[in-house]
């Protein structure tokens, strides 16, 4: 696969671009020195070293993944141990009811309608430097999770940041604040990637 790479030898982070906040992730990843590629069809996944599933509407993404035949290629990517970051709707895409690669069940719009969208600061286990500034937008939380899933942060007793193997799932949007620590945390798992200072 790596022979088809046009971007040279640097690590490539794919970003699912069916619909949603993919450009906001792109901006943060570019600041950190990553090469990114928008993913709309299965061939876009070839040769990527990591993948971001952004926020957006999970119903739209589910239909798009089905329409484009992306389900099996995405599952293969996850099973191969490729680092994956899912935020908000991206977290939902990873759960048991969708791609089924993360042993959790997400509850959609768990915090309520837009009127109850909010910003908050809290610690995320494994992320140094104190509380992380987060934005929750019509956000989900984790209603159930299996024993392999490590909970990194909770809000109101509900997991909102979890990790299982190379998969990191967040109910909130690290790409919409000035924070880049969660993206750094994610990129540290990408083999051979050195975060730009």
């Amino acid at each position: 696969m790596s022979t088809s790479r046009l971007e040279g030898s640097r690590s490539i982070v794919g970003i699912l671009a069916i619909q949603g906040g993919f450009e906001a992730h792109e901006r943060v990843l570019h600041r950190l020195g990553a090469v990114t590629r928008q993913v709309r069809v299965p061939v876009d996944l070839e040769g990527i070293d990591a993948l971001v599933l952004p926020g957006g509407e999970s119903t739209v993404m589910t239909l798009g993944i089905e329409r484009e035949g992306l389900g099996d290629p995405l599952r293969r990517l996850a099973h191969s141990g490729t680092p994956i970051l899912g935020t908000c709707a991206g977290m939902i895409m990873l759960d048991r009811a969708h791609l089924g690669v993360l042993d959790v069940l997400a509850k959609r719009n768990a915090f309520g309608r837009q009127l109850h969208s909010f910003e908050a600061e809290f610690e995320v286990a494994g992320v140094p430097g104190g509380p992380v500034h987060t934005v929750f937008i019509r956000a989900p939380w984790i209603a159930e999770h299996g024993p392999e899933v490590e909970v990194l942060a909770e809000v109101d007793g509900h997991p909102v940041a979890v990790r299982q193997g190379a998969i990191l799932a967040l109910a909130f949007h690290p790409e919409l604040t000035a924070e880049d620590r969660l993206h750094r945390f994610f990129l540290e798992q990408v083999a051979g990637f050195r975060v730009a200072e």
Binding site: A17, Q19, G21, E23, G56, A89, Q114, R138, H173, L176
Partner: peptide, 11 residues
């Protein structure tokens, strides 16, 4: 949070 919802509607 307000502009963020619009970000999520993109595309």
């Amino acid at each position: 949070a307000k502009t963020g919802l619009a970000e999520m509607l993109k595309g």
